[in-house]
């Protein structure tokens, strides 16, 4: 894996203590790689290369294997996310109830594609296989809060509201 940039290094230093606690808690427990990566992502919001390398070193696992596991599961991200993570459900019920039109509307509003983050770092748009709230289809989740049933207009309004609240409260990107 390539070198990590300075910003990433600073971030790592800040949260290093938390990561060390996680590693200590799982050290010696066979088969805990997925759990360690989940907790690591909980700390950093994503899995920086330097973190994967550190986990590998501490647990005695080759970086290639960690990368293999991290890229296998959809939960793991290798890039930072915005302050607000929009997860747009692509389940069957949402699909037949017009999830694609919701996606088009959100993409137009934020000017990003699924998987991307807005330039100001506020929003990341992601699609998920199913959120399990099928009776509210079509559904999206913004930072863990589910909204549905959506219309293209309604979805855009929800995002605008989040943005407005952010602006009023100073709009600091974490």
């Amino acid at each position: 894996m390539g070198c990590s940039c300075q910003d990433e290094q600073n971030l790592l230093d800040e949260k290093n203590g938390l990561l060390n606690n996680v590693i200590t808690a799982y050290k010696g427990q066979a088969g805990s790689l997925v759990a360690v990566l989940q907790d690591a992502q909980g700390i950093y919001g994503y899995l920086p290369q330097s973190v994967m390398r550190l986990v590998g070193k501490e647990l005695g696992i080759k970086p290639a294997k960690i990368y293999g596991v991290a890229t296998f599961y959809t939960q793991f991200r290798l890039a930072p996310v915005g302050k607000y993570l929009i997860m747009l459900c692509q389940g069957t019920a949402c699909h037949v109830n017009g999830a694609e039109r919701i996606q088009t509307a959100i993409c137009q509003e934020l000017k990003i594609k699924p998987g991307e983050t807005t330039d100001d770092g506020f929003f990341t748009l992601d699609t998920v296989a199913c959120l399990g709230c099928c009776s509210l289809a079509p559904v999206m989740m913004v930072n863990g809060q589910a909204y549905g049933p959506l219309t293209p207009d309604g979805a855009v309004k929800i995002i605008k509201n989040v943005y407005q609240k952010e602006m009023q409260s100073g709009g600091e990107v974490q």
């Binding site: 066979a30 088969g31 805990s32 790689l33 997925v34 759990a35 990566l37 989940q38 293999g68 596991v69 296998f72 599961y73 959809t74 939960q75 793991f76 296989a129």
Partner: peptide
């Protein structure tokens, strides 16, 4: 409790076990 990390194939028994063991499912 072990949390799955999002892979449909892990519904298959042997893939689920691989995932429990911290491997690719």
């Amino acid at each position: 409790i072990k949390k799955g990390a999002g892979a449909f194939v892990c519904g298959e028994e042997t893939a689920l076990i691989a995932s429990l063991e911290g491997e690719r499912g």
